[in-house]
């Protein structure tokens, strides 16, 4: 494993598993996160997994207390770094059961106002765009940008589309969009420049739940198609 550890300021460190975005590297990030979940080190405040890095916020004051017991004069960062290296070198019983989350989408119409643009941009019919979007093998690499917002890999480049020149001031929550070679779902209402192709009635972010984000890094996603009536029904059922 070719990893390196760097300080991120004076209260966090970053573990770098490699520069590129691929499933193997991302899997290493999640394995390391699983070890931290297992051991819950007291000096850790929280961790933030990304595509190819895992950042740990640590408590330098807690660590400073620990160091006082040991005779060596080392900084909390160095101490935490050694702890992390030890942790990473341990073999893990971690086995992730892959979750597949189904996301029902009502494609096109008033909720997918940019579907026709994505279709004409790629010289396809709207139906072909929908089919291609549903057939993708999607992996959630990380959650970031906004609460519950998934960075999803695996979209077919055939339906890639540039961001809008004039970003919308408000994109409703549940909107499913395309930006470049990425597809995504908006968990909360926010401004944005993505091309919107549909909307899901699912709530991706619920602050009062124990697990506020529906999706977690490492989840597989399957988009399924629903019509307006099913959308309304699911939306009501969810509320």
């Amino acid at each position: 494993m070719n990893i390196s550890i760097h300080p991120l300021g004076d209260q966090a460190l970053l573990i770098d598993f490699g520069e590129s975005i691929n499933e193997e590297t991302n899997q290493q990030v999640r394995q390391a996160a699983a070890k931290l979940d297992e051991q819950k080190p007291k000096w850790m405040i929280e961790y933030i997994p990304a595509f190819s890095t895992l950042t740990i916020l640590y408590n330098p004051f807690y660590i400073a207390k620990q160091i006082q017991i040991s005779p060596k004069e080392i900084l909390p960062y160095e101490w935490a770094r050694t702890e992390v290296l030890t942790l990473l070198s341990q073999s893990s019983s971690y086995y992730s059961e892959e979750r597949t989350i189904e996301i029902p989408v009502c494609y096109g119409g008033e909720w997918g106002p940019d579907l026709s643009f994505v279709a004409s941009h790629n010289s396809m019919s709207e139906e072909e765009v929908i089919d291609t979007h549903m057939k993708g093998n999607y992996l959630v690499y990380m959650i970031g940008f906004a609460p519950g917002f998934p960075y999803i890999g695996g979209m077919d480049k055939k339906i890639a589309a540039p961001r809008r020149d004039d970003p919308r001031l408000s994109i409703p929550s549940g909107s499913v969009g395309i930006a470049g070679e990425q597809t995504g779902v908006y968990p909360i209402e926010t401004p944005g420049g993505w091309q919107l192709i549909g909307r899901t009635p699912l709530k991706l972010f619920e602050p009062d739940k124990d697990e506020p984000s529906l999706l977690q890094a490492g989840d597989r996603i399957r988009f399924t198609r629903i019509d307006k009536a099913e959308y309304d029904q699911l939306k009501e059922g969810g509320q």
Binding site: A33, I45, E46, Y47, I48, P49, L57, I143, G144, F145, A146, P147, G148, F149, P187, F205, P207, E211, P212, S213, A217
Partner: peptide, 10 residues
């Protein structure tokens, strides 16, 4: 609000 940055919560 610490502990939820992995869920994208600032």
């Amino acid at each position: 609000r610490y502990g939820y940055q992995k869920d994208g919560v600032i």
